[in-house]
């Protein structure tokens, strides 16, 4: 103990302590956090807790029995997948009216989201939250995923899912921050302006391939910085800023050089 006490004023002491504290927090979190497996089977108590959450957070707009009203969709039959997507991306509960519900830091934690999903799923059958196996891309074919994406998704989300504009202030979001589960759920349930791609429309394999294609994009561009990956407009902007900008600066320098 004496050895430690002697070193407590060492200049690395705060850093070491911080590292230890982070390690401890991580370990405790790993031990206590709910695992994916435990989320699978909703119990009666989950549904009850979910109903309480629903009445507190959702019923104001969707109605006390989730039947919806003018301009607010009914949630009967939307399934757990829709709830998980909307709530885990922070789109629901909605903060304010606008062209479309915006993604924000989720308001309910994972446990609450699971309970809420269980309650809504109990109202009527609907698409379930995809399992870990369904979004596992180990054997997926990103080339097929790209072809599927190009035909079905790129017209709104852009060539590699960086997002794009829709009418009247709506937009297709950037997909680079979405988890595989969220991407799968979005295809399954068609949130907001997005069409539904059910299992008959795009097979589960196709969906998995799309996720694999999107994961390929995480590696970044082989050509250097991707300039936002939004296409030729950004390239045009940068040729004026960097190319012409630098060269005019250098022209002034050369012009000012004594002859």
């Amino acid at each position: 103990m004496k050895a430690i006490a002697a070193r407590r004023h060492h200049r690395f002491a705060p850093a070491v302590l911080l590292a230890l504290a982070l390690l401890l927090t991580g370990a405790v979190y790993a031990a206590l956090a709910p695992s994916a497996a435990s989320a699978a089977a909703p119990s009666e108590s989950d549904i009850e807790a979910g109903e309480a959450l629903f009445q507190a957070n959702c019923a104001t707009c969707h109605g006390p029995s989730a039947e919806g009203r003018d301009g607010v969709p009914s949630l009967i039959g939307v399934g757990a997948a829709a709830v998980d997507f909307q709530v885990s991306t922070g789109r629901m509960p909605m903060q304010m009216n606008g062209p479309q519900a915006m993604a924000k830091p989720p308001q309910l934690d994972e446990e609450q989201t699971r309970q809420l999903a269980a309650y809504v799923a109990s109202l009527a059958p609907g698409p379930a939250i995809p399992t870990a196996e369904q979004v596992d891309t180990t054997d997926a074919d990103p080339a097929n995923g790209m072809a599927v994406f190009r035909t079905n998704c790129a017209m709104c989300h852009g060539a590699i899912g960086k997002g794009g504009a829709l009418s009247e202030g709506k937009f297709a979001p950037d997909l680079s921050g979405s988890t595989p589960t969220q991407v799968y759920e979005a295809m399954l349930t068609g949130p907001q302006s997005m069409p539904v791609f059910n299992e008959a429309n795009l097979s589960p394999e196709d969906k998995r391939d799309v996720i694999a294609f999107l994961e390929e994009q995480q590696a970044g561009s082989p050509g250097g910085t991707d300039l936002g990956a939004v296409g030729p407009v950004a390239e045009g902007l940068w040729v004026w800023v960097v190319g012409i900008g630098l060269l005019i600066g250098l022209s002034v320098w050369i012009g000012a050089k004594s002859s």
Binding site: M146, A147, R150, T151, A154, M155, C156, H157, G158, A159, I160, K162, G163, G164, A165, A172, S221, P222, G223, G224, T225, D226, L227, A229, V230, G231, P232, V233, E235, G236, L237, W238, V239, W240, V242, G243
Partner: peptide, 29 residues
């Protein structure tokens, strides 16, 4: 610029096929 900034990443757009048009389809400036 060529060494550090990606330009015209055709591998993102894929081989031509008359049916798809992606969002953000623009010509050079």
């Amino acid at each position: 610029m060529g060494a550090t900034m990606t330009i015209n990443p055709v591998w993102n757009y894929g081989p031509y096929d008359p049916s798809p048009v992606s969002a953000g389809a623009q010509p050079d400036w």
